[in-house]
Amino acid sequence: MTTLRRIAAIGLILALGACTTYSMVEATKGYEVGDAFKVDTPIAWNKARVHSPNIELWTLDGLLQTLVFVTGVSNGDTLFSGPDEKKPKFDEKSTIIEAKAFIIDSLLTSGVLEYREISFAPAKLAGQDGFRVEFKFTKEDGMERRAFVVGALKDKKLYAIMYSGAEIYFYDRAKQEAESVISSAHFL
């Protein structure tokens, strides 16, 4: 068991070293996120280096709350890139209802449990017609979390920005700022 643990620990270091050190995103206007959005942020964030071409992840307190940009999922792609055959794949012919189901299903196959929808309604992302879904959920640890996702389809690709955090304190801590980033978003 110890040997395996050690291997796992080393593997984890390599994995972490390879893909997730944090850099600063200063409070600024016109910050470019991937090849997708231009946003303004009233506060500084930590941006994680992630190994996923169509994802950008910002946070204030580690994974206690995250702002995740989905910068264009193409036909046949999974939401978070990875080799997993079992993850849902995006279909460019999707309606908005299917696009939302694709996102939620992707989350539900990535450790999200007890999904409880609070609201689902039409909304705009970067001026494009889309949806906004709010929900509560937990993960295996049983800690309550809250999240919302704003998404839209453009040129046969899916774009979205999601904000989530621990329900106690951390979700509220940066919600306003996350909303402000999202409402400032423009397509590049």
């Binding site: 997730t20 944090y22 204030l60």
Partner: peptide, 12 residues
């Protein structure tokens, strides 16, 4: 994670 591992420091 973020306070003790230098590589994982949160710049903000």
């Amino acid at each position: 994670t973020h306070q003790y591992i230098p590589e994982m420091k949160l710049p903000t």
